[in-house]
């Protein structure tokens, strides 16, 4: 599909969900089911942009299922002469439950390298999750999609309960058997550390609570927040 970006005169103001909806209506714009992250392919033209739509339950504004439920990855090829124009296509479609991305559980973040996309999952916990959050690798050349990491919830191990409590701020959230923690942001740090194939990613461990996690950043608004989380460095993934 080809299309164009339009100027939003109210861009300088914040807008509520309802106001956003009416702006989208006004422009006859595409309403995506929660755009979460964006990156561009490295080493090429710089005009090959990927963004991730995480998906949303088929209720409320998505009651007619016109938006994604399980998540999609889009490619936006910007016009060489006019960056406000471009072509949009779906690259991976989690809603096609017999297609290559049929196991998608709400891809959330993306990093694009020269030859790959790495996609992190943050399941919406519909209750039909079959795996804990994956880090997906998508080969832009061969189109192969595979999981390269799965978050380890310590299932079946003696300390499982310690990391999988359902108390605290996420009390009622953990209704799903799997996938209740999320991968959370990924960047390519190869050039910073001088070691090709090195990535940094975050994991929000929603089931790991401890008093020592409270208020460590000095923030005051979510002072009750006591979840553990981790920043990990991954090496050896191809770029």
């Amino acid at each position: 599909m080809s299309g164009t970006f339009l100027f939003v005169p109210t861009h300088h103001t914040e807008s509520s969900i309802g106001q956003n909806r009416s702006t989208v209506n006004e422009f006859s714009a595409v309403s995506f089911g929660r755009v979460e992250d964006v990156d561009y392919r490295k080493g090429g033209t710089g005009r090959e942009v990927y963004f991730v739509v995480t998906g949303q339950a088929a209720t409320g504004v998505n009651a007619d299922n016109s938006r994604s439920k399980y998540g999609r990855v889009y490619r936006l090829m910007l016009d060489a002469n006019d960056p406000t124009k471009g072509t949009l296509e779906v690259v991976l479609d989690g809603d096609d439950r017999s297609g290559p991305a049929r196991l998608f559980q709400n891809p959330d973040n993306v990093v694009a390298t020269q030859n790959y996309l790495y996609l992190e999952e943050d399941p919406n916990e519909y209750g039909d999750e079959t795996h804990d959050s994956y880090l997906w690798q998508y080969n832009l050349i061969t189109k192969e999609l595979k999981s390269v990491f799965e978050i380890d919830h310590r299932r079946g191990l003696p300390d499982f309960a310690k990391f999988n409590t359902v108390t605290g701020t996420y009390a009622a959230a953990t209704t799903s058997a799997r996938g209740s923690w999320e991968n959370s942001g990924i960047i390519d740090i190869s050039d910073i550390v001088g070691k090709p194939g090195t990535f940094m990613l975050g994991i929000q461990v929603h089931g790991w609570h401890a008093a020592r996690f409270k208020g460590v950043d000095g923030g005051v608004l979510r002072s009750v927040e006591d979840q553990g989380s981790q920043l990990l460095i991954l090496s050896g993934l191809p770029r």
Partner: peptide, 21 residues
């Protein structure tokens, strides 16, 4: 956040060019 992202990145990818405002 996602909506703010949507607005800020101007992912208003429209099929018309009618200036609405």
């Amino acid at each position: 956040l996602p909506l703010v992202v949507l607005a800020t990145l101007a992912l208003i990818y429209a099929l018309t060019e009618r200036p609405p405002f």
